[in-house]
């Protein structure tokens, strides 16, 4: 563990908490892409299956459980409890165009052709594009509530901090994982446009 990864995990946790609070407090999921949230739940489910097979640390196990619970909790709030406020008309990104390529790519490029490894690789590829429906929805509606933009800023920052973690690990532990690094860079690059808007204008209400 290093400070970059710890800050990244905290930023990730913060993003998920901000989202849950926004939906719970405003009792509305307006402006939030349910499709992205479904993709995140698939990402965590595919990646954290090793929760039952390999114990790494209490921190690791607890965070995995928190991320899984929070992502399914968000889906429950969006599609069941506050379903009436879900904005179907603007949440239209075709997620099958994201899932299928990630499945194919994870079968072609992976560290080891075993079920758990393929699922992990699939989750890494899918996570890098999982935010696209949300960014697409924000661009379509032309704006985002301030709380939603804070959510996106924290979520985008998490993987950017992980890139610093990978740089650190390369020099400090001579460890690197090409698949995670390339996907993490793609994921962070996708936020660049949003980061620019967030920092220059605070995109809410524009």
């Amino acid at each position: 563990m290093n400070v970059f990864r710890l800050l990244g995990d905290i930023s990730h946790l913060l993003a998920i908490i901000i989202l849950l609070l926004k939906i719970w407090k405003t009792r509305s999921c307006a402006g939030i892409s349910g499709r992205s949230q479904v993709l995140f739940a698939v990402v965590y489910t595919a990646r954290y299956l090793d929760l039952f097979t390999s114990y790494i640390s209490a921190y690791n196990s607890i965070m995995k459980l928190v991320f899984l619970a929070a992502s399914y909790g968000t889906i429950y709030l969006m599609f069941i409890k506050f379903k009436a406020s879900y904005d179907h008309n603007h949440d239209t990104f075709r997620i099958e165009f994201l899932i299928l390529p990630c499945v194919l790519l994870s079968l072609l490029i992976n560290h080891e052709f075993s079920p758990l490894e393929i699922l992990w690789t699939f989750s890494i590829y899918l996570e890098s594009v999982a935010i696209l429906p949300q960014l697409f929805m924000v661009s379509k509606t032309g704006e985002a509530e301030s709380i939603t933009s804070h959510y996106l800023f924290a979520l985008g920052s998490y993987r950017a901090l992980y890139i610093l973690n990978w740089i650190y690990r390369y020099y400090a532990e001579s460890h690197y994982d090409v698949i995670a690094i390339v996907a993490g860079i793609v994921q962070t690059v996708l936020y660049c446009d949003f980061f620019y808007l967030y920092i220059t204008k605070g995109i809410y209400g524009q």
Binding site: R5, H12, S54, N60, H111, E112, N165, R169, H175, D177
Partner: peptide, 10 residues
């Protein structure tokens, strides 16, 4: 140690 899957990362 190079190019191994980062198993300890979330």
């Amino acid at each position: 140690r190079l190019l191994q899957r980062s198993k300890d990362e979330l």
